[in-house]
């Protein structure tokens, strides 16, 4: 195989992967009503609640610690430069805007990808290996509707919630820094925060978080559904789920940030 053939085959595989993802995405969208309370099928809503606990509630301590650490780091790094110009107050803008627009959604996505994306892949991969997915098909049940949809709904609700919590903890870490360095009261800090961020910053971050949740769930599940062979294939799929979803999250982040930037310019 020459280099051109290798590149071509690699490209075809990547396009096939993206095609498979988009196909699964539309199947997931069509399956979502089955998981909703009242109108959905019985029992599915409880599974979505269980997933919400796993994706959201269980991740909160880690999100809180990571957000507080990142908030403090951002404040320290920003203050080191801004202090030279007597502009220490702008640390508040840096932390508040940085978190609501960028760090909150991104940090949350990385944590959810590492915790839940890998878990989705491992769970579904194991189901493939033990013929549980085949059993679902023979029961005339759609694996996307049965396995993916509750996870998708749970992630679409919990990832934005986690993003908001990440923003709060990150910004509160900035408050801690400002109090320690300038004895700034929390009330004044909060007022500066509300002065610096706009509603569109918050909504922009939440739109990003919805896109990131979609990527994490679909990549994690797709890697699981693709598993062929034994337990070692499940291990490989787990790694692949985290690597691919993190990569795609960052690409999506670039796309959304560029789009929001261009929208602000107009």
């Amino acid at each position: 195989m020459n280099i051109l053939e290798g590149i071509g085959e690699g490209m075809i595989q990547q396009f096939a992967y993206i095609g498979g993802l988009s196909d699964q995405f539309w199947s997931g969208i069509r399956a979502l009503p089955c998981v909703l309370p009242v109108i959905g099928k019985r029992g599915r809503w409880q599974e979505a609640i269980r997933q919400m606990t796993a994706i959201g509630v269980a991740a909160l301590p880690m999100i809180a610690i990571m957000a507080a650490s990142a908030g403090m780091i951002l404040a320290l790094q920003g203050a080191a430069e801004l202090r030279r110009f007597g502009a220490l107050r702008y640390v508040i803008d840096l932390v508040a805007v940085g978190f609501t627009r960028e760090l909150g959604p991104l940090l949350t996505a990385i944590v959810v990808s590492g915790r839940s994306g890998s878990a989705f892949s491992a769970e579904i991969g194991t189901m493939v290996v033990t013929s549980e997915i085949d059993a679902l098909r023979t029961l005339a049940l759609d694996p996307v509707e049965f396995v993916l949809a509750p996870k998708y709904l749970a992630a679409m609700i919990m990832v934005p919630c986690l993003t908001v919590m990440c923003n709060v903890f990150g910004i509160l870490a900035g408050a801690g820094f400002m109090y320690l360095s300038t004895r700034m009261a929390l009330g004044i800090y909060v007022r500066y925060v509300f002065d610096s961020i706009l509603l569109r910053d918050v909504f922009g971050g939440l739109i990003k978080s919805l896109a990131f949740a979609t990527i994490i769930v679909h990549v994690g599940c797709m890697e699981g559904f693709k598993v062929r062979g034994g337990p070692e294939a499940v291990g490989r799929s787990t790694t692949s789920a985290v690597v691919r979803s993190t990569f795609l999250v960052i690409l999506a982040d670039l796309f959304f940030t560029a789009a929001f930037y261009l929208a602000r310019m107009q």
Partner: peptide, 12 residues
């Protein structure tokens, strides 16, 4: 069609 698989394939 009811199917029973070689590995049982119960949902764990």
């Amino acid at each position: 069609v009811g199917v029973s698989f070689q590995e049982a394939a119960l949902f764990n």
